[in-house]
């Protein structure tokens, strides 16, 4: 069973059960500039869902999303296969908001870039509740701080 490694602030690291909605990859840099404001990003995801580029609801399979100072890792529940690995230094921002479908589910949008910062990608996951989404944001924010302080 996946043991949650607690949340000692010095080394923030935690695992969460989420579902994968979909992703929009390799957006050109000028496109990514229009996606800086949270509401622009949300509207972009909405539009992608309307256009069928992103589903409205995720697949049934639950996944384990791990957040640590190394970044975000998404693996199958039995942790046998890793689906996504987002290194912390390539994560631009993370956004969480109610999906508006009335079931209290929260969407998590992760904006990542490539090493040359020419393109960006949007990864969308669904959390079971806003509390879960908030704690994911907290651990990620702690991870950024942890890396920032260690760089000084």
């Amino acid at each position: 069973s996946t043991k949650s490694s607690g949340n000692s602030t010095s080394d923030a690291c935690a695992e969460f059960r989420v579902k994968y909605v979909g992703s929009i990859e390799k957006l050109q840099f000028d496109m990514s500039k229009t996606l800086q404001e949270p509401l622009d990003l949300i509207n972009y995801i909405d539009a992608a869902q309307q256009d069928g580029k992103l589903p409205f609801v995720p697949g049934d399979e639950e996944m384990v999303l791990g957040v640590s100072k190394y970044g975000v890792k998404v693996a199958s529940v039995d942790q046998c296969d890793v689906l996504h690995r987002h290194p912390l230094y390539l994560i631009v921002r993370m956004l969480c908001y109610d999906d508006g479908l009335g079931a209290g589910k929260n969407l998590l949008a992760l904006k990542t870039t490539d090493t040359r910062q020419q393109e960006c990608s949007i990864w969308v996951y669904q959390c079971s509740s806003s509390e879960q989404a908030q704690s994911i944001c907290k651990v990620l924010s702690a991870s950024f701080d942890c890396v920032l302080t260690s760089e000084k």
């Binding site: 800086q36 949270p38 509401l39 949300i42 909405d46 912390l88 230094y89 994560i91 631009v92 921002r93 993370m94 956004l95 969480c96 908001y97 109610d98 999906d99 508006g100 479908l101 870039t113 910062q117 806003s130 989404a133 908030q134 944001c137 990620l140 924010s141 950024f144 920032l148």
Partner: peptide, 17 residues
């Protein structure tokens, strides 16, 4: 679709990008 509170976490490395 009505969007309630939005929480954002920005990587300090990309502040303003």
């Amino acid at each position: 679709i009505y969007k309630s509170a939005v929480t954002t976490v920005v990587n300090p490395k990309y502040e303003g990008k």
